[in-house]
């Protein structure tokens, strides 16, 4: 226990230098306000889909951020299994939590978008289905973390699942794609496939993507700092109970 705590219990271990958190928070907030301005006031209204198309500037970056998050979980899990440094476990745990939030948002914005555009709330299209499976895998990951009584054991198990879950994703994607290609598609109404994006739309999308990545970075670092604080608190409680 004490050895595992050692690496993570230095006060500043979440950040390279103090104050970075505040800078990142202010920068993300300002850039996000600009992002909202661009999305709602600068980007042109889609000729075919109308105003509802604007959700696309949230949906796509959020979905991509969630894939990035699970990739981070994968890399950090390998790092943890190889080095056993609790810093890696902290990265994996934080990335998984933030990733689940983002993938949930991606699913929800997708559902809101699909209803007016495709005429259905949900369709078992490969990308949607794969995203849903991702959601299930990483919800299971978080469940696993909270259901293992022994913390260091939980970290190892979670790392195993973090690797398996990510390796599984391409296989799931191919299998669902083949499965769909055989069955008729449930999509009705005007299809979203409206061709290439206009340059201005593309620029807004890229900007939005960058801002959401920054938001992810901020949440990730903040969550890691919170976790380190939790670890230190439980270590202090442990020590004070020993003294009594």
């Amino acid at each position: 226990m004490a050895a595992a705590q050692g690496a993570s219990s230095s006060p500043k271990s979440g950040f390279a230098f103090p104050g970075m958190s505040g800078v990142l928070l202010v920068a993300t907030a300002v850039l996000m306000l600009v992002n909202l301005y661009l999305i709602f006031l600068v980007a042109p209204t889609d000729a075919v889909l109308g105003e509802v198309q604007r959700i696309f500037y949230f949906h796509v970056p959020i979905a991509i951020v969630s894939f990035v998050a699970f990739f981070v979980v994968f890399v950090a899990s390998i790092g943890y299994l190889v080095t056993r440094k609790s810093r890696w476990d902290s990265v994996a745990h934080a990335a998984a939590e933030v990733g689940v939030v983002f993938v949930s948002l991606a699913l929800l914005t997708g559902i809101v978008w699909a209803r007016p555009v495709w005429g259905v709330w949900w369709t078992w299209e490969p990308r949607l289905t794969t995203t849903l499976i991702l959601w299930l895998i990483y919800v299971a990951y978080l469940m696993l973390r909270s259901y293992v009584p022994n913390k260091s054991q939980g970290a190892l198990y979670a790392a195993g699942l973090g690797i398996i879950g990510f390796v599984d994703v391409p296989i799931v994607y191919y299998s669902v794609q083949w499965w769909r290609s055989i069955h008729p598609s449930a999509v009705v109404g005007p299809l979203a496939d409206s061709g290439a994006l206009e340059p201005i739309m593309q620029a807004v999308l890229f900007y939005s993507q960058a801002v959401f990545l920054l938001l992810f970075l901020y949440l990730l670092l903040e969550r890691m700092r919170l976790r380190n604080a939790e670890d230190r608190l439980s270590a202090l409680r442990f020590v004070s109970r020993m003294r009594r």
Binding site: I133, L136, I137, A140, G165, D168, S175
Partner: peptide, 13 residues
């Protein structure tokens, strides 16, 4: 909860 999401490709196949 752990098993079914991961095993899905095999189940579909």
């Amino acid at each position: 909860v752990l098993f079914f999401p991961v095993i899905l490709p095999v189940l579909i196949g």
